[in-house]
Simulated assay, not measured.
Amino acid sequence: MKSVFVINDNSVEARSVAESALMFAKSIHARLVIGSRGVKSASMELAPVVDDIDDEHHIDEHLFHYLNVLNIHTAGEETEIVETDISDLDNSALATFINHNNIGMVIVPAGNIDDAKLDMQIVLNKISVPMLMLPANWQYKDIQRLTYITDLRWCRTDVLGYLSKLTLPNKTDLFVGHVAASGIPDLDEDFAKQIFFEAAKRCGNHQQLNFHHIKSGDIATVADVLIHGMKNDALVLINHSAHYGYFVGKKLSLNHPELISVPLLLYPN
């Protein structure tokens, strides 16, 4: 079973992200792994922290116990939750941990993890799985519409294949949103459609793929079209792509937080 991974740095943001991560893990039948900073366990083995809860309605201050109670009392099949100590891990060691523990997705807040040892942009550069970045005050909801933002001249069929498999069980509407890279002439409408259909045919489940041509390079206009016009529940960006810098800052925080109110799925290079 693949796992969803979150970091607990004892912040309010971490608690909110962990709640959303649990709901997401339940929806895709994945395990939830909590990497805690400051928990002094005996080893780095993936083993749950064991402690009985006398009252099933009691919410413990400890995030692990709180999530177990939430797991029981929310809709959907219960998922396994494990906690492990990552206090001593730096960027490289954390990336290695993620890559070697069957983790399928990392979920983080839109802002720095509160730890001088970790720069999540560096971690993203080193891992082989996507990272889902949640904006502040985002409340979990099922993702019904998802758009991969790219210039079709550099559209990656491996990403389309991954997204098709990710979204198929929940019948999510999946779009490719073509936005011409800065400084490059836009594609003719018919030629853009031709490139899209050729790319779609090379990935699985291409019948669920849709195409949208966004004829603007202005970030405010693009964000408005994608979020309010198309009503996307999340957006997909490739790490270090031409469009990544429009939305994401160097420290894995939103460049324009006032414009982005939906999660960003950041796919590795």
Rank of each mutant, 00 (worst) to 15 (best):
L67V: 08
N101G: 07
M23F: 11
T147K: 08
T84R: 11
S20F: 09
I149H: 04
F191W: 10
H243E: 07
E13P: 02
T96K: 12
L266K: 02
L163T: 00
A192I: 13
G76P: 06
I122K: 15
L46R: 08
K250L: 08
H57Y: 15
E77Y: 05
I7K: 09
K171V: 05
Y162C: 07
M230N: 06
V106M: 08
D60W: 02
F196T: 11
V176E: 09
H73I: 08
E19F: 11
L152F: 00
F5E: 07
D115M: 03
I184G: 06
I238K: 14
L146D: 11
H206M: 10
L168I: 03
S36L: 02
A220D: 13
L264I: 15
A14R: 02
V236H: 08
T84I: 13
K141V: 02
I122G: 07
R15S: 14
N255Q: 13
D173S: 15
L152A: 11
E258C: 04
D190Y: 12
G76N: 05
E78M: 15
I34E: 08
N10M: 05
M120R: 05
A95T: 11
V82R: 07
S41M: 12
A30G: 00
E83D: 09
V222W: 07
H65F: 14
D158P: 08
L174N: 06
D224Y: 06
L46S: 10
V17F: 01
L237H: 05
N170G: 10
L132E: 02
A42K: 12
R156M: 10
V179Q: 02
Q121L: 07
D218F: 07
L187Y: 14
L152T: 10
S92W: 00
L132W: 03
Q144N: 15
Q121E: 13
Y267N: 09
S11Q: 08
L226N: 01
A30T: 00
A25F: 09
V50L: 14
V33K: 00
H62L: 12
L265D: 11
M44W: 01
H256R: 14
M44C: 06
H212R: 12
I34N: 03
Q207S: 12
H178W: 04
M120I: 07
S128T: 12
I34P: 03
E80Q: 15
V108R: 03
N205W: 01
E78Y: 01
A234E: 01
A242H: 09
N102K: 03
F97S: 01
P135V: 00
H58Y: 15
E80P: 03
L63N: 01
I103V: 14
V225T: 13
M44P: 05
V50F: 07
R156E: 15
I98R: 04
F97G: 09
H243Q: 10
D188I: 13
D55Q: 04
I7N: 05
T150D: 11
G76T: 02
T79Y: 06
D88Y: 11
A234I: 02
I72T: 14
F247Q: 01
N101H: 15
H57D: 15
V123W: 01
A199N: 14
D51P: 01
L146Y: 10
L32M: 06
